[in-house]
Design a protein around this nucleic acid. Structure first.
Lengths: 209, 209
DNA sequence: TCGATACCTGTCCAAAAGTACAATGTGCAG
DNA sequence: CTGCACATTGTACTTTTGGACAGGTATCGA
């Protein structure tokens, strides 16, 4: 398994060399030249120094090399992660991931897997249900909600106020509150913010609660 | 690494035993009992014999065990895959995957990765970009936030109340409010719910406003 | 040194959100 | 029929939020 690091910053190579002593390094994607005919390897792409607009193209170029690409970002973000993975990357991690972590990721990617930080992974999966037609209930807990409660919950999930909800459902604000109280109880959240997040599959703090 | 197979059909164990000679087997999720305190392992869940309605719950139950779950389906389908993965599964493969393939998947999942057949993976990535606004709507505006404001915004994004934020940042609730007012103004949202959603890249209604 | 900015806080107030207790009407399963 | 779950609304009250107005301090660049 070969490893090819692409980064303009030399100082980060320490960590990489610690993880993969025999890795090669290059400054630009263009530098890697023609596809090596030998065994498959992994391309590690540092995008920290790239302008956001260039990143997508860079990932594509790296992916064209034929090896799986792992993108390393200084400040991993959801939106960026999904976009770059869609450009062909098979991994997305923090630029400063520990050597051990890097080896872990290498193992995953090397075997056809797909890696990103756990919280992003979760979010990623949650998003999928939004675009995929599904008849079965997504979240079993949502089953406990009555149809009316579900309508209210969905409105909150989109940021609606009680007044707006009452107008949309043609009921009193008081009734909206009644439904909300029931929803909070059933879903185990304490207010509309947590409900909105929960409805979008985003985990919340809940200090002690 | 332990392997736990959950299947009602005995005839499939040949393949599994070939892949993981030392795996355990059970017929139902309920049979696996309490979480083993020992090392982490992988739960392989055969859902072929389950009614579609039960599958979701079964995956959740298996996931509750604490080990990563790989779902094995007789006829892998896109919609089902995404739904089950959303229930906590970290892998989704064909029931009749070759032993070598199974080991491959095991490696991936074991190291925190995520596995599904390449064609599904592709589809999955493509779909995800549809729901994630590629041009993060508020992202650029996040730059306008001062560091302190950003801290507050992030707390709200996780569902924290003003009191919690004030405690976390060791400032007065009054100050939290001051920051929030500035944030609302800068990001063009009207309350904490919309802020929380915006911070998570989730579009909001905003009736007329 | 003089703004400009960020950061922090106070009081006061109004609106929104959430809860408690109570009641009415409807539809459906046993 | 009868009980039960659901939907609806009312009054009244507490808590949380958000905003208006009015300050303080500290830092940093012109």
């Amino acid at each position: 398994m070969e490893h090819l690091f692409i980064t303009p910053a030399g100082k980060l190579r320490d960590r990489w060399e610690q993880a993969f002593p025999r890795g090669r390094a290059a400054v630009q994607v263009a530098d890697i030249g023609e596809a090596t005919s030998g065994p498959r390897g992994i391309v590690w792409l540092d995008i920290a120094a790239l302008a956001p607009a260039e990143r997508s193209a860079e990932v594509q170029a790296a992916a064209a090399f034929g090896w799986p690409v792992v993108v390393m970002a200084a400040t991993p973000g959801e939106s960026e992660a999904f976009q770059l993975l869609n450009q062909g990357a098979m991994g997305y991690c923090h630029l400063k991931a520990a050597p051990e972590q890097l080896r872990e990721i290498a193992l995953v990617v090397e075997h056809g897997g797909f890696w990103m930080p756990p919280e992003l992974m979760q979010r990623f999966l949650a998003l999928s249900t939004r675009v995929v037609p599904t008849e079965a209930p997504i979240d079993p807990e949502l089953n406990e909600l009555t149809s009316r409660e579900l309508m209210v919950a969905e409105q909150v999930a989109h940021g609606a106020s009680n007044r707006e909800i009452s107008e949309a459902l043609e009921i009193t604000e008081r009734t909206v509150k009644a439904h909300l109280s029931a929803i909070f109880e059933k879903l185990g959240v304490r207010d509309r913010v947590q409900l909105a997040l929960a409805m979008n599959n985003i985990p919340t703090y809940t200090t002690v609660n």
